[in-house]
């Protein structure tokens, strides 16, 4: 019944992706800069959603790994004088390596505690970043011109290059996460999203899956961090490890767009950027509004905008997991299935 709708939605998506790919030929420099930021935000939203929507980890410390990526990139290029093209993957690797001990410590905390644990960890990473020699201390420092020039001699070239990099990052983050969710591990993750207790008893190794997801996000967050350093042309503890930009806004985006789907974070990011264009002048009121909306969403439409779309009969444009297609039993169960007390016994 919804096949034409599905085709239409996929056509719009394909057109959007094509337009993004042709971006440098279609848009002016200002739009490209905004889109560059948009792709960073989409990447961050996809990662936060993977943790919150599937692995049951609420991270309030995502900014920690974003900052590590930015600082690592600065270290490899400005301090160790490596080529930027070597520094980018090395920054991702560094973030992953730092994520391992962080995970080992904070995974001693479970459920609600873990959320605050991620926050403490990010705070520690930020404070350490401010202590590192050569990184400008608490006020940070600019990327050296020669480093920046490696991305293009002219400003216009660099804007195109940053655009291409962040688009590439968002696409890879998206495709890799999609592939993860469609893999065997993803099957377990979807089960976990729908009912953690049942997933645990059906043999999905919750701890290992959680660890995998947590480490999975680290290099992508680190790469997003590299992009933030390039966008701002500097690193600083408060900017590179900014909780509002890299976590709070992202939580709003995913919650409003729809936790636990691939479409939700993207939808949320688009909405966020549109709202921001109109409401940026309202400052604190803008964040208050987002807070009110997201509380409303959690209470009345826990699966966000995309969840509402689904209920109105919208098919999954990007089916994740092993049960693709509309009408799969998983969809029929709807949000109520999760709200049922887990310990309910019958008979």
């Amino acid at each position: 019944m919804s096949t034409p709708m599905l085709l239409g939605a996929r056509a719009i998506l394909a057109a959007g992706v094509l337009a993004c790919l042709a971006g440098p030929w279609l848009f002016d420099a200002n739009s490209l800069t905004v889109l560059t930021e948009f792709f960073i935000v989409v990447t961050l939203a996809l990662m936060w959603n993977l943790l919150a929507g599937y692995a049951d980890i609420i991270s309030v410390g995502q900014q920690g790994f974003v900052g590590v990526g930015a600082y690592a990139f600065f270290g490899f290029t400005a301090l160790l004088h490596m080529s930027v093209w070597a520094a980018v993957p090395l920054a991702a690797l560094t973030t992953l390596l730092i994520a391992v001990p962080v995970m080992a410590v904070i995974f001693r905390l479970r459920t609600a505690y873990l959320a605050v644990g991620t926050w403490v960890a990010a705070d520690v990473l930020m404070l350490i970043a401010g202590k590192l020699p050569g990184f400008g201390g608490g006020s940070g420092t600019s990327l050296p011109i020669p480093v920046v020039k490696q991305f293009g001699a002219r400003l216009g070239d660099r804007i195109d290059m940053f655009y291409a990099l962040s688009l590439g990052l968002a696409l890879i983050a998206f495709l890799a996460t999609w592939a993860l969710l469609r893999s065997r591990i993803g099957l377990g993750l979807t089960a976990m999203r729908d009912n953690e207790e049942a997933a645990g008893s059906s043999g999905v190794d919750l701890v290992r899956t959680r660890i995998l997801c947590f480490l999975w996000t680290a290099p992508f967050l680190g790469l997003a961090g590299v992009m933030t350093a390039l966008e701002k042309l500097r690193v600083a503890p408060t900017a590179s490890f900014n909780i509002t930009d890299w976590t709070i806004d992202i939580i709003f985006i995913v919650v409003i767009g729809g936790i636990g789907s691939l479409e939700g974070p993207i939808l949320g990011a688009i909405l966020f950027f549109l709202l921001r264009q109109w409401l940026a002048d309202f400052g604190a009121w803008y964040l208050i509004l987002l807070g009110v909306i997201s509380i409303g969403v959690i209470l009345f439409e826990p699966k966000g905008l995309w969840g509402a779309c689904r209920r109105w009969g919208f098919p999954d444009i990007l089916p994740a997991g092993h049960a693709p297609g509309p009408g799969a039993p998983e969809r029929v169960a709807g949000p109520d299935a999760q709200e049922a007390p887990a310990a309910r016994t019958v008979g």
């Binding site: 919150a52 049951d56 609420i58 459920t111 609600a112 959320a115 953690e196 939580i251 919650v255 936790i259 997201s294 509380i295 959690i298 209470l299 826990p302 999760q338 709200e339």
Partner: peptide, 9 residues
Amino acid sequence: KGILPILLV
């Protein structure tokens, strides 16, 4: 409803 809603609220 699990830990997610209360944390987010």
